[in-house]
Design a protein around this nucleic acid. Structure first.
Length: 764
DNA sequence: AGATCAGGCATTTTT
DNA sequence: TGCCTGATCT
């Protein structure tokens, strides 16, 4: 326990390390406060100290609500506060909007007609439910695409528009009519009903229902309004209407609301984030104290100024002048590559050299791109140079089939009304219950007006015949799992038992392929994660239900730690890079239509948000920044010629070092070349590949490529390249047979490199 | 019920 | 190009 005297000293100590506006933000006692915090302005330090300061001045941690954007950010902040004030920090209500309000909904579920064991549907579950509704309505799924419908409904929920409101809103109906999707309202309504019947909430419901809860049950609102003496919101620029209304209501009694954000970094409008929230905050709270943190401690002068020169072009923004007292630093390298593959190689080489010259570590570097699909060429290049990397994003651990399968069992064990979990596991592993039978169960349930589980658990009565056997087995299995919950077993004990007993683990264990092994390991990894959850002191509730609630809100930024070595180059989208910083940053793929994204320009016409995204990317760099773009790129297996991005051209040229541009032209179709290769590493085709193909790898003097082929291609076969066409058919002679192949190649200087996969087929 | 195959379609970002 | 879906066969 820290003594009172020590505490005071500590406060004084950290206050001395702050600049004037930072200190004011920390010391601001009550009343609304808005902190506009530029990139790298020590925002997290201020928030941390502010909360620590409140606690040191006698505010009960239980009465502080602190909302952050990611689980990771909240975890880190909690740790830092703990370092200041000790274990009391654990009692702060801190987390993402979704996790905090899921927790509250869990406590108050009965008010809304849910049980506290409600399931949380992830995006996949939601879309799958939508697909089945669209099918049941006999609508054309090419017109009513699950994705589009989902986004429409999600957008409505984020603006607090219920299904009834949606149907009654003339403007929305006219919109849908114009888009030839006038049934969306009906779909929305059925979707909401089905979610409710399934005792399930989707991501948006967690916020939507919290609003309903606070609107319709004043007693509940009263309780939390009085409970939370201080409400803090980080990344305020990325909150949507639904989130904002919750925080406004919660802070209406004590009026101690502190929002922290940077309008220049608002990049989630596509998800309903409303930049107006930050621009209008002063209207909602006329007595707000606004503090601007404008000094950047993170980056060099060049980087800060370049970022400012970009964002200055945006019209809608608050006035703010970010500056730094750091040294000017080096110019921003601009790297021009002929192709995406060359871009990969140039960046990898640049990292390699920089690492050697400056004695840096891999973890000092980050490669930031607009879309996840761009990671491929960098992966290949880094691997070739033996540089370790990690990719954040893409297919999340929790989206893998095997993980969702086991979670499906866990969910259904906790909540037998969970329709999506049911569909997932009813025939897994295969137990002879096909689509037909599942449909029969569903029809019976709706005809008899009973729950699916009632049909399943009494299949002898409702279904009968030979189908009853396997269904009954399934029901017995689930009943035995439910028993474990009633016995009060913890999440790990139950999950481990289910993994074994359900046959999931056995099926994966018997799969000896590389993929099978890795799936098996993933399931083990999930079990480890559950064990950690149960063992952690931070979690009081160790029930399976509590675990499921927490796990469904994890994101790919919260993957289980690959504990091993941390020293890796980080690759991720710019969106995932928010809040992070790296010594050296590469912003890649700066091509028109890619960044700014063509889709964004077509659908939302919002160049400003794209520009803010660029701003976020630039300001991640501490010491050195590089931009790169390719003059041609593979997209959908096709070659595409690219223009440098308008954003790249917007950067004030005095900050740029363009001498690094490589003087090679773009890849051009028709470049002539010839050579000989020998087939090596002949591997059997994967089951998913077409029957008449065999994977093989050949070797050329300059590089590697791997053709796949039909017939009697054997190791040691001589392969002759007659001519290279770029991404076009080339003729080869293998064992006297003519083949056609698609080959990817790259031109560097005057050299032609064969780069990657070629599919060979016999020419007919 | 499950395996196989052909054809269509997609690629923006994520709590 | 490669993945997913739905139709068709066993």
């Amino acid at each position: 326990m820290i003594k009172e005297g020590d505490r005071l000293k500590k406060t004084e100590n950290y206050l001395q390390t702050l600049n004037e506006p930072q200190r004011e933000a920390v010391l601001h006692g009550g009343g609304p406060l808005m902190i506009i915090a530029g990139a790298g302005s020590g925002k997290t330090r201020v928030l941390t100290f502010r909360i620590a300061h409140l606690i040191e001045n006698g505010v009960d941690p239980f009465r502080i609500l602190s909302l952050t954007f990611t689980n990771k950010a909240s975890g880190e902040m909690r740790q830092r506060i703990e370092a200041e004030v000790g274990t009391e920090a654990r009692n702060i209500w801190m987390g993402t909007f979704h996790s905090v309000f899921a927790k509250i909904l869990r406590i108050e579920a009965r008010y809304l007609g849910y049980t506290s064991d409600f399931s949380i549907y992830d995006t996949d579950d939601s879309k799958s439910l939508l697909r089945s509704i669209i099918k049941e309505f006999n609508l054309d799924d090419k017109v009513y695409k699950a994705n589009v419908v989902y986004n429409r409904i999600s957008g409505a929920k984020n603006r607090l528009i219920s299904a009834e409101d949606y149907l009654n809103n003339a403007i929305i109906q006219a919109d849908d009519e114009a888009a030839k999707m006038k049934e969306i309202g009906r779909i929305y309504k059925t979707y909401a009903t089905r979610c409710f019947q399934a005792n399930a909430m989707d991501f948006d419901d967690l916020l939507f229902n919290t609003n309903i809860l606070f609107r319709d049950f004043p007693d509940v609102l009263y309780k939390y309004q009085h409970k939370f003496q201080h409400v803090m919101v980080d990344e305020f620029q990325d909150t949507n209407v639904s989130q904002y209304l919750i925080t406004r209501k919660l802070s209406a009694v004590h009026r101690n609301i502190c929002v922290v954000g940077d309008d220049a970094q608002s990049i989630y409008a596509f998800r309903g984030a409303n930049i107006e929230n930050i621009l209008n905050f002063e209207k909602d709270f006329p007595d707000v104290r606004t503090i601007k943190l404008e000094q950047n401690y993170r980056s060099t002068g060049t980087i800060v100024n370049a970022a400012n020169s970009v964002i200055a072009r945006n019209k809608s923004q608050l006035k703010k002048e970010t500056f730094t007292k750091n040294e000017e630093g080096v110019l921003i390298d601009v790297i021009k590559a002929g192709s995406d593959n060359e871009e990969g190689r140039l960046i990898a080489t640049a990292i390699f050299e920089e690492k050697m010259q400056k004695a840096l570590r891999n973890e000092n570097f980050a490669i930031l791109y607009r879309t996840n699909a761009q990671s491929r060429s960098f992966e290949e290049a880094l691997r070739k140079l033996g540089i370790k990397y990690r990719i954040i994003g893409g297919m999340s651990f929790y989206q893998r089939k095997e993980i969702k399968d086991l979670l499906g069992y866990l969910r259904f064990t906790v909540n037998q009304r969970d329709e999506e979990a049911f569909k997932r596991i009813i025939n897994l592993p295969k137990r002879g219950i096909g689509d037909g039978t599942v449909a029969k169960i569903a029809v019976t349930a709706s005809e008899q007006q009973i729950a699916i589980w009632d049909v399943v658990s009494n299949s002898g009565y409702y279904i009968g015949g030979r189908l009853a056997g396997p269904i009954d087995q399934f029901a017995t299995l689930i009943k035995s799992f439910k028993l474990l919950i009633e016995e009060g077993k913890d999440a790990y004990e139950i999950a481990a038992h289910i993994a074994k007993t359900s046959g999931i683990l056995r099926e994966l264990y018997e799969d000896k392929t590389v993929e099978g092994l890795s799936r098996y390991e993933n399931v083990q990894e999930l079990l480890n994660g559950i064990k950690e959850f149960v063992d952690s002191d931070a979690n009081e509730d160790k029930s399976l239900s509590a675990f499921l609630q927490s796990v469904s809100l994890l994101t790919n930024a919260d993957e289980p730690d690959e504990n091993e070595d941390h020293d890796r180059v980080t690759m991720m989208t710019i969106h995932s890079a928010k809040g992070l910083e790296f010594r050296n940053v590469f912003v890649v793929g700066l091509e028109e239509d890619l960044f700014p994204s063509q889709m964004m320009l077509e659908s939302r016409q919002d160049l400003e948000e794209e520009r803010r995204l660029f701003y976020v990317a630039i300001t991640r760099a501490e010491q050195k920044l590089s931009f790169s773009y390719a003059e041609s790129r593979y997209q959908w297996g096709r070659l595409k010629m690219c223009e440098p991005s308008r954003f790249l051209l917007e950067v004030d040229p005095k900050f740029l070092n363009v001498t690094k541009m490589l003087q090679t032209g773009p890849e051009r179709p028709g470049a002539e070349s010839s050579g000989t290769s020998f087939v090596r590493n002949l591997t059997p085709r994967k089951p998913s590949e077409p029957r008449n193909m065999v994977s093989a790898a050949a070797h050329t003097p300059s590089s590697d490529f791997s053709p796949s082929d039909t017939s009697n291609l054997t190791e040691g076969d001589k392969v002759e390249h007659m001519k290279f066409g770029f991404g076009t058919v080339i003729k080869m002679d293998i064992n006297g047979t003519d083949r056609k192949a698609t080959v990817k190649f790259d031109t560097v200087g005057d050299k032609t490199l064969l780069l990657s996969f070629a599919k060979l087929r016999i020419l007919k």
